[in-house]
């Protein structure tokens, strides 16, 4: 089974993403939405941790939430896929189950 995990809290403020990564199986997909999108940016205090985790998980980030916060898609960590709400829906249907780390 492949699970989709969604995270909506900033990893610079809360431990939701850490909890998610510690309990997600290798090969899981992780989608960053809402305030979590800052975690997808390069040169943040958590960027190296995310890059390291990319060996185990595929990361996605919700584009409209990046744009809303004035965060430049061009500065997203290489290898993280920017998706729209339609891509969000596809991620849910392509995986076997979803857990929201609210």
């Amino acid at each position: 089974m492949t699970m989709l995990h969604t995270v909506n809290k900033s990893p610079l403020d809360r431990n939701n993403l850490d909890s998610c990564m510690s309990m997600a199986k290798k090969g899981s997909k992780i989608l960053l939405i809402e305030d979590a999108v800052i975690g997808a940016m390069d040169n943040t205090a958590v960027a190296e941790k995310i890059k390291g985790a990319m060996n185990d998980f595929s990361f996605y980030v919700l584009g409209p939430d990046l744009q809303a916060r004035g965060l430049d898609e061009g500065k997203v960590i290489g290898g993280i896929n920017v998706v729209g709400y339609d891509g969000y829906v596809d991620l849910v249907t392509e995986t076997d189950n979803v857990q929201s780390w609210v």
């Binding site: 089974m1 510690s22 309990m23 997600a24 199986k25 857990q99 929201s100 780390w101 609210v102």
Partner: peptide, 18 residues
């Protein structure tokens, strides 16, 4: 441990988080 919990979560049909 987390690894065992991850295995359990992976086999669920519905996961709700509060």
């Amino acid at each position: 441990g987390k690894a065992e919990l991850a295995d359990l979560m992976d086999e669920q049909d519905v996961v709700m988080s509060f």
